[in-house]
Design a protein around this nucleic acid. Structure first.
Lengths: 205, 205
DNA sequence: TGTACATCAGTGAACGCGCGTTCACTGATGTAC
DNA sequence: TGTACATCAGTGAACGCGCGTTCACTGATGTAC
């Protein structure tokens, strides 16, 4: 029953996409290899033809998750003026749990705890993913001539990740809306260029 | 070998404190009942004299964790002027992983993912814990005559929880310092009363 | 206050289940000639 | 281009381990009289 090399490569991609979605939605520990494989229409034994362990799957699936959400946000903002691009990204990031596409979740906000205790290989992927988000914002901020565009970008990422992370713990719909609204307000404040902020910005490390 | 009622109550407290510490530091799924009990100098069989299931332990241990960190922050700021109190809380919250006392960790930042998939009973405890943090900040902000003290308090909690959550994923010491520094800057910005912010504040929901 | 019985905190072993991983096997694909 | 063998994607069962939970048991504590 050997499959062609092309088919095997497709299978690998399918496993990664499925694992990514299940991890993001249900958590890593709660997702068994057998769950992933049967969701792909395969049996669990075949898993080890593609990955050497669950840890490796976790690393690669998270990389895929970052690819997916960043690509989506990039496309969403293509050709848009920078200020609008930033607002669009923030808007959609904060509402990621209301999206129809449940692959559009960010590991930073949805897997933070589990990734905190992961092995170095996985942490590297996560740090790289964080960095991609920061650079995405920084690129737009640079076009708006913000001096401290890296620091600002990092702050924005921190705010939106924190909000989604908190919102995920809340059952209450109203509480979720409040958290999201506050986060949007905070980002607006960060982007404001008052004289006082200019002074503070200059003093930042 | 029956113990007196007083001793049994003490044992229960000891199990809760130990479980709280282990959960916060290693995660809930990674902490087995047997780990908790042996860390208490007991055997696992005795656990069910005090709790009906691990889920109940998780709920009670998280309540204890919130009690502990909130009590600590309250004591830290007792008698201090409100502005200083807020800065002290933010300072210590952001550096919770550098504290000698590793029971001083916040479930919101360290267990977010695992709590996101927990049962309603646990989520209630978490929501109550979030509320306590918000009220702690709101009390100080009210004394400073901020109009929208609840919204501001929620924003501050979101920022510091997000920062600690992100910092926990990073290996890199320098990255952790940057994240913490950014969070402090963002909180300062939130507390700033520029005319523009006054306008925004009035417009908030 | 003392006695007699019931209760129950804690022990240590066992149960049952889920999950990561392994393995022998199948047969289509890849490759060397 | 065709043939012969090696490779290997995928199967399905089994293994082994860890963990939550249960259980019979012990003996000190609680309590009813």
């Amino acid at each position: 029953m050997r499959k062609s090399n092309a088919e095997a490569a497709e299978t690998r991609k399918r496993i990664l996409a499925t694992a990514s979605e299940l991890f993001l939605n249900n958590g890593i520990a709660a997702t068994a290899i057998a769950d992933v494989m049967s969701a792909c229409g395969l049996t669990q034994g075949g898993f080890y033809r593609h990955f050497t362990s669950k840890e490796h799957l976790v690393a690669d699936a998270n990389a895929v998750a970052f690819d997916y959400i960043v690509a989506n946000l990039d496309e969403l903002t293509r050709g848009k003026p920078p200020r609008e691009a930033i607002e669009l990204i923030v808007f959609h990031y904060l509402r990621q749990h209301q999206s129809e596409d449940n692959r559009l979740l960010c590991p930073l906000a949805n897997l933070s705890t589990e990734l905190g205790h992961a092995d170095p290989q996985v942490k590297e992927v996560v740090t790289a993913g964080y960095s991609r988000f920061v650079k995405m914002f920084a690129a737009h901020l640079m076009r708006l001539d913000y001096e401290d565009f890296m620091g600002l970008a990092e702050s924005i990422v921190s705010v939106i990740v924190g909000a989604v992370s908190l919102a995920h713990m809340a059952d209450d719909k109203a509480l979720v809306d409040t958290i999201v609204g506050n986060a949007e307000h905070t980002v607006k404040l960060l982007l404001q260029r008052s004289p006082a902020q200019a002074g503070l910005t200059g003093a930042r490390p």
